[in-house]
């Protein structure tokens, strides 16, 4: 803990498919600033798209909280998707490849998990759902603009 610190948190609403596009753009921008490479950015933004859509469609909308992480030289991004929808009754089932309740190919949650390094679900029926993920830039931070 001594050498890690968190900076400010950005909170974005997820209420429509326009919001999904906005969330993707914001995440890509922050990830690029933190030094995520192109492939890593693409993986993270794709995972975010899956999870934000899950919040929108299954949770009836909600929000995402985005926090930059610093651990020594490592840079990362934590995203928490929260909704107050019906909750997930069977998390194991929801995490199964091919399991779908609607619009996608059933790869949403299970696929998103494979695209990030940390993944956790907190949900129970009637209590809403929070899905928290984190990804770390495996590449090196972009050289900062030299001060002065």
């Amino acid at each position: 803990m001594q050498t890690s610190s968190d900076t400010g948190t950005i909170r974005l609403p997820i209420g429509s498919d326009v919001d999904l596009a906005w969330v993707r753009q914001q995440v890509r921008q922050v990830a690029a600033e933190l030094g995520f490479g192109l492939v890593q950015q693409t993986k993270l933004v794709t995972a975010v798209s899956e999870l934000a859509r899950n919040t929108l469609i299954h949770g009836g909308g909600g929000q995402v909280e985005m926090t930059a992480l610093y651990r020594g030289p490592a840079r990362g991004l934590r995203l928490a998707f929260t909704d107050s929808g019906p909750g997930i009754r069977d998390i194991d089932q929801a995490m199964t490849d091919g399991y779908t309740t609607g619009s996608g190919l059933g790869m949403g949650l299970s696929g998103a998990k494979r695209l990030v390094q940390e993944f956790s679900i907190d949900s129970s029926p009637g209590q809403g759902t929070t899905i928290t993920v984190a990804a770390w830039a495996t590449g090196l931070p972009h050289p900062r603009a030299e001060a002065g």
């Binding site: 050498t3 020594g72 030289p73 590449g139 090196l140 931070p141």
Partner: peptide, 17 residues
Amino acid sequence: METALSAGEEVIARQRE
């Protein structure tokens, strides 16, 4: 010291890449 050490880690990571 922390900055110096993490700079060392970066060099190692870069070389590994």
